[in-house]
């Protein structure tokens, strides 16, 4: 009876198109997930067997064809931590300046453009810069410090851009509210802007952690070693690192059992995922507390 609301031919066609589009987009999403699933699956399948407490906490033996990965694991923690210590404060300070203080003029725009371009510089170029600047010019030698600073420079743009974006996502009205009660810019930033931007800032840091722990080229010439029979004692020592170790056992050393590189890769990915989920958990906790 519902003649008035009956489906017309045009309705039917639109509905069909709508269904097609939806299916297509869903397929694209699946396409995105499949490689990730295959990678993780293969790693677990081929490398899962080798993972053990011993594997994590002992040295490589027999010319790196057996034993564990402890020096590389610890080395990556060193490299990432020192890189974060350098890039997070600098990146956040720069982002605050650019977002909250810098006037909107051509030089600010030029700086912003430079930052975006910096993010696109290939990591091998950063590596060579690191050798020139930190290893040779500043005389830090091949060391954790040189390698971490190289990583820091490479990831700085990510931190700056994501921090700036989360600062700008805080409504301008909040700042005006503060200024109108006679707050200085800094008081407004500290009391209102930063607390409301912190979850976004953390996202940038998460990204940086992921990227930093997997990079190989920038640390290869600046501080990471193929093999070291001892652990680093400080930032002026060289270190092994997970990413380089993976490269070495996959391509540079003959006679490595197949499961070893898979195991190394699995641990590396697990580290990144673990750090990411910790940060995401922390973000969700903070987000739950905020409301506007």
């Amino acid at each position: 009876m519902a003649t008035m609301f009956a489906e017309s031919a045009l309705n039917a066609r639109n509905k069909k198109v709508q269904g097609l589009v939806k299916t297509l987009f869903m397929l694209m999403t699946l396409l995105l997930i499949i490689p990730v699933a295959i990678i993780l699956g293969t790693l677990v399948y081929k490398g899962g067997g080798i993972i053990s407490i011993d594997f994590l906490f002992t040295y490589p033996t027999d010319g790196m064809t057996a034993g564990g990965i402890f020096p590389a694991l610890l080395g990556t923690v060193w490299l990432v931590s020192v890189a974060l210590l350098a890039s997070v404060p600098i990146g956040i300070a720069a982002a605050i300046y650019l977002s909250e203080y810098a006037p909107d003029n051509w030089s600010t725009r030029a700086i912003n453009l430079a930052i975006i371009n910096l993010a696109g510089v290939p990591s091998i170029v950063h590596a060579l810069f690191g050798v020139g600047a930190f290893v040779i010019f500043f005389g830090f030698g091949t060391s954790i410090l040189s390698a971490s600073l190289t990583l820091a420079i490479m990831t700085l743009p990510v931190v700056i851009v994501s921090t700036r974006e989360s600062l700008q996502a805080v409504p301008p009205a909040f700042r005006e509210a503060c200024w109108n009660m006679g707050a200085t810019r800094w008081q407004a930033i500290r009391k209102v802007v930063l607390p409301n931007a912190v979850t976004g800032i953390l996202t940038g840091v998460i990204l940086e952690v992921s990227r930093t722990s997997g990079e190989t080229a920038p640390i290869m010439f600046t501080g990471a070693a193929f093999f070291l029979p001892f652990l680093p004692q400080g930032i002026f020592d060289q270190t092994m690192a997970m990413s380089l170790h993976l490269f070495v056992v996959s391509t540079q050393v003959p006679g490595v059992p197949e499961e070893l590189p898979y195991g190394v890769a699995l641990v590396l990915i697990a580290m990144v995922l673990l750090m990411n989920s910790l940060s995401i958990g922390f973000r969700m906790y903070l987000r739950g507390k905020k409301k506007w």
Partner: peptide, 12 residues
């Protein structure tokens, strides 16, 4: 000189 805006802007 205090100011009140068009949209109420209480701090969160």
């Amino acid at each position: 000189v205090g100011m009140v805006f068009q949209r109420p802007n209480p701090l969160p």
